[in-house]
Nucleic acid binder design. Structure first.
Lengths: 252, 252
DNA sequence: AAGTTATAGTAGTCATGTCTAACAAGAGGC
DNA sequence: GCCTCTTGTTAGACATGACTACTATAACTT
């Protein structure tokens, strides 16, 4: 049994150093302070003490000005972080369609936070999408082709018909309408945010997310703005923002 | 135009404070230092200086010992973090099947790292899964029912046949085999990690992930361990671990 | 009115992790 | 042998964000 991963909880910074060393050793056989500093975008003066900390933790072998080597434990820990990075980056790039650059940056930021359980769940999901043809392979292609999701709001050529009635909506109100057409007092469940660009970002940031229940509270100042309620919180939207939200009306 | 999100980059801790205040104000009308301390699991002595920082940044209005109120900017920032939390938590719980507790904890850890682009990508994906019936709704149910993914390794009742040929594999080698049956010098692309429990965790941490190319380097000491190469790095596996990895053999 | 209790704020300490600037160790040139 | 250049180390400063222990308010009690 060699799978003793006692694993002292490392800080994000130390994990980063470890991962950087891992990659440098893999790619160039040796890791020097200089390279680590450049890769992590910090000054050399910050690297030395970090190496000392890693050395004290028994994760690297390092005598001053000598080669930097990962110990067995260090390698295990580095690989763990690296694996998380890989999974996240692949998910963000291949499945969510982020450009590789951003995918890697985001993966770097999140790799330290991902718990074992989340990692496991994500991997199973990827396995499922990759291995079960019924759901997989072309699901992602279809996703990336779906116009309704990726802009210009047209029909989906991939055979996605009109929207389904909302799962919790109960009744039969299958038609999705713009939030702007709901009258005060009525409520709707968000199906999709059709707005694009900054307008979309603003809506997402305001909590207008698919699946969320929104109640119209009132229209103010000539119908140009409307106050809505999302999960117990009052939010103001412009008419333009409201136009960019499709909801399933919910019976009052 | 009120969507000026000039947004000073907040630290994770300050975002957490802001989010906590947001939730307290929503749920109980007022946020006291005491409640914030309890909710964030810190001591009251840590809260006061944090409130001062938030106040200096213009995100809350706070006179000593008075009510704590979010400013408009503070509310915007808090909502943004909260929206990220919601999306991540929903993804982790509803789509990856994590227990609610872990989903929330993981979401808390990651919400500060998620970039605008990743947030957008994730929301689009969720919209797609929710709104396009061809792919959605039962995809997730099927995923959660799929035995091949969730344990005991049986056939999938949901009509997932044998595994597909690997996308990059080129040729016609449709049969997935255990990594343990590959001979030295041969390579395979990981389709699925069938191992369960700690063995599975160990494999994931070693970088044995779906889609990754593995080359068998050699068997050592009576075939009980095998050395493999993953993405330029040598890794050791026990025979038991290797048995728990299904790969598509790749032509040499 | 005086004392008790809950709550909030202050001061001082600590660990991380960064920076800059000064200093040290080798390598190679001349 | 000495100089210079690259590289690495050390020391001191700073920001963040936590802690503990102590002090200050305000609100109840009796």
């Amino acid at each position: 049994m060699s799978s003793e991963t006692s694993s002292i909880p490392l800080t994000a910074a130390l994990e980063d150093y470890l991962e950087t060393i891992y990659e440098l050793v893999r790619d160039r056989r040796v890791a020097r302070v200089r390279d680590i500093a450049k890769a992590r975008n910090v000054k050399a003066g910050s690297v030395s003490p970090a190496l000392k900390r890693l050395s004290d933790l028994g994760l690297i072998r390092y005598e001053q000005r000598e080669f930097i080597e990962l110990t067995t434990e260090g390698e295990t820990a580095a690989r763990r972080v690296f694996a998380r990075h890989q999974v996240l980056a692949s998910f963000l790039e291949d499945f969510l369609g982020l450009p590789g650059e951003s995918a890697r940056a985001d993966a770097c930021a999140m790799e330290h936070q991902l718990s074992d359980e989340a990692m496991d769940g994500l991997v199973r999901f990827l396995e499922y999408l990759r291995a079960c043809p019924q759901a997989g392979e072309d699901l992602i292609e279809r996703f990336h082709r779906c116009k309704r999701v990726h802009g210009d709001g047209g029909e989906c050529d991939e055979g996605c018909p009109a929207f389904l009635p909302s799962p919790q909506g109960g009744g039969a109100l299958p038609e999705a309408v713009s939030l702007a057409f709901l009258s005060p007092g009525r409520a709707g469940r968000v199906v999709r945010v059709t707005a694009q660009g900054p307008l979309r970002q603003g809506l997402l940031d305001k909590g207008v997310l698919p699946g969320v229940l929104i109640t119209i509270e009132r229209l103010s100042s000539g119908g140009d703005r409307l106050q809505i309620r999302i999960g117990g919180y009052a939010v103001n939207l412009t008419r333009r923002e409201a136009m960019g939200v499709e909801v399933h009306p919910v019976a009052p």
